[in-house]
Nucleic acid binder design. Structure first.
Lengths: 219, 219
DNA sequence: CTCGCCAGAATATGATCAAAATTCACCGTG
DNA sequence: CACGGTGAATTTTGATCATATTCTGGCGAG
């Protein structure tokens, strides 16, 4: 989803930066997100910040509180289950479609990403895990060309990002969901169903781990 | 999703108005949406218009063209199929959940909505059909309380709204998908599966009709 | 005819300010 | 102690302007 303009508008830069802060847990569940706060943190003007906030609230990545304040979403187990349901519906399907469009270079690129991910896991780097895991999935799904389903997947990852970071912060990178090797094997075989099934298993594993942590509380 | 403030901010008013313009086809596929155009049409200031546009682009209801211009989405058959896939994944599920939360008053309200819908169909009122059909589905799904899935459903309806209006404009209200009677029967019986199945059938019927129209062209 | 260039018009973006709305801290009262 | 009121501080909202970017139409050259 490359913007064709030579120069990125500030609102787009803010959007992307803020999006990553949410995905990878720099912003924590329940945290207030103020315009002036972001102006100070990111060193940009108020207008682009406002516009980026609007975009992210529409994606569920930030939440209107009804008193004009905006916070990072806090998830309870039922919301997590909804995210899980939707991810299981959408992500295996975009994975299957991605395989149909896949070139050898794509697989090579994905393998390199998975290596980075595995290195992050080995060194116990939670932030690195979150980022590399996201990038692996995002790169795979982008290959599907299915823009509508992609926007759903992205929205789901954004909604779950901060809470996932909290949970992982407790348990570290041991026993993290990782069926990427199976997915990559399926890609090499050009077997969309195998890839979809591996992604499905990856998601299920991750869902169960976080769900157990969310039971009885909201993160 | 009630905003608790006593006075709706202008950006929220614009958002809601623009959203309806998209859902019910006042804005047509490919149409450029300019800030100043909306300022003139809606009689509000530039800032709330800009913020509303940002929100709607994040929902896919409006599309960045990459040259800073924003237009109403144009759908081809593959995008319609994606919308169909996601709707079939999500909407029966939220319908099932809605039944679990349903009170007799809710059913009474939905019946009244369906009556309005049937009246619109009888008088060949395409705009009325679109609005009343949307309101029936939205009211049903809202009962689920499943905010994440609801936001997906809303996004999907927004993306398809303008193109659906074009297609219906060609064929009128004859033979429109309508399995609402079956859905209402399921609700009265407290049978979530039956409601889910009726909604599923309703969606499938509508999908097929629009798909046939989109084949070979984009709307 | 096509293509490229240019100027002006149209549009988007960001800055910045004032007004409106909400929150917070403090004080007084029961 | 709890609660309510008040004023200040903080934050959001909308206005409005200047600047940056893109589009469009006309003109000239090949």
């Amino acid at each position: 989803m490359q913007v064709k303009t030579a120069k990125l508008p500030d609102h787009e830069k803010v959007y992307r930066r803020l999006r990553e802060m949410i995905l990878f847990g720099e912003l924590t569940p329940g945290q207030a997100v103020t315009i002036q706060g972001l102006v100070d943190t990111l060193g940009v003007g108020m207008t682009p910040v406002r516009e980026a906030i609007r975009r992210l609230t529409s994606e569920g990545a930030l939440v209107f509180q009804g008193n004009r304040r905006v916070t990072v979403p806090v998830l309870d187990v039922s919301e997590w289950d909804e995210i899980a349901f939707a991810r299981l519906a959408v992500e295996p399907e975009v994975s299957r479609r991605a395989v149909e469009n896949m070139a050898p270079d794509d697989i090579t690129r994905l393998v390199a990403m998975d290596d980075q991910l595995n290195a992050a896991i080995d060194r116990g780097d939670v932030r690195g895990y979150l980022e590399h895991n996201y990038r692996f999935h995002a790169a795979l799904y982008e290959l599907s060309g299915a823009q509508v389903l992609l926007s759903i997947a992205n929205m789901l990852w954004l909604r779950g990002g901060p809470s996932l970071r909290v949970v992982l912060g407790r348990y570290g990178t041991a026993n993290l969901p990782d069926k990427h090797a199976e997915a990559l094997a399926g890609m090499r075989a050009g077997d969309g169903d195998a890839v979809a099934e591996a992604i499905r298993g990856d998601i299920l594993q991750g869902i169960d781990q976080v769900r157990a942590s969310l039971l009885g509380e909201k993160v």
